[in-house]
């Protein structure tokens, strides 16, 4: 148990180190969501409804967490393959899923920077009166949401073990999740056939919990659903990882050559 936690912790920490050593990547991860947030804030300001603007500011802050994961998760194992470490990870006795989960956890953690940056941007530049009703609960809800997003990223990353073009899929999924998870657009206003998709995605519940925490609701049910769904994604990802690694052993796709 402690060895497993240590393995996760070390994987997470080293991934954070690796990722934060690419200054360009880091800057982009913060600036890119801010660009979209800026546009969104201007649109809501033009609309004139102050309370809608505040809700949007809180929702927009989560957009960057998903961007950080979506754009890097699918490519992460391709990177490992390219630098020749994917084989070493598979050849190690530690269960493969436990090596991939910390990678996407680290991406989501870096995404939390953008969450804070977006809130500050809204507060300072747009002077949106964001006040967090229950700061600790808000932080907890944000962390749970980030965890849920990282487990979605885990599923995405695992798919890429076998399919090399999957990295493009990650980028293509950036907008759809922004659209369906209720970051800015209330799920209830989406077409009816879309809503069930929203319900099975952890960030939908995570964002709802974050908004509850910010505006004085009770987020615990939403947090629990987000955690439960995340666990399901984790289990599916782990099962898929086992199958795909075996397929890769048959089809010899672990190495680049």
């Amino acid at each position: 148990m402690t060895a497993t936690l240590r393995l996760l912790g070390m994987g997470w920490w080293l991934q954070m180190k690796t990722r934060s050593r690419d200054p360009f990547d880091g800057i982009l991860n913060i600036i890119y969501p801010l660009i979209f947030a800026t546009t969104v804030f201007m649109m809501f300001r033009e609309g004139g409804d102050e309370s809608a603007l505040i809700t949007a500011a809180v929702g927009a802050s989560v957009m960057g967490v998903w961007s950080a994961v979506a754009t890097s998760a699918a490519g992460s194992l391709q990177n490992e393959r390219r630098q020749g470490t994917l084989e070493l990870l598979v050849a190690a006795p530690a269960p493969f899923p436990l090596l991939v989960v910390p990678m996407t956890l680290a991406m989501a953690t870096l995404g939390l920077y953008s969450l804070v940056a977006t809130l500050l941007w809204g507060r300072i530049v747009f002077q949106i009166p964001i006040s967090i009703d229950q700061p600790l609960v808000f932080a907890a809800a944000a962390i749970v949401t980030a965890a849920g997003i990282s487990l979605m990223g885990f599923l995405l990353a695992v798919t890429a073990v076998r399919y090399r073009a999957a990295w493009a899929l990650g980028t293509a999924l950036e907008f759809p999740i922004w659209i369906v998870c209720g970051f800015l657009i209330p799920v209830a206003t989406l077409p009816e056939w879309v809503q069930p998709i929203s319900w099975i995605l952890p960030p939908t519940w995570g964002v709802a919990a974050i908004q509850d925490a910010a505006f004085g609701g009770t987020p615990w049910v939403n947090i629990a659903i987000c955690l439960g769904l995340s666990a399901v994604y984790g289990v599916i990802g782990a099962l898929l990882a086992g199958r795909l690694v075996n397929a890769a052993r048959t089809h010899a796709t672990l190495a680049l050559t």
């Binding site: 649109m43 033009e46 922004w178 209330p186």
Partner: peptide, 28 residues
């Protein structure tokens, strides 16, 4: 596999995203 998401699906999604945000914000 990369060209279609980038040059065809991507722009449509961006249009839909902002149109829906616009509806929510009550602008445009």
């Amino acid at each position: 596999w990369i060209l279609i998401p980038t040059f065809i699906i991507g722009p449509v999604l961006q249009i839909v995203f902002f149109a829906l945000v616009g509806r929510t914000a009550g602008v445009g």
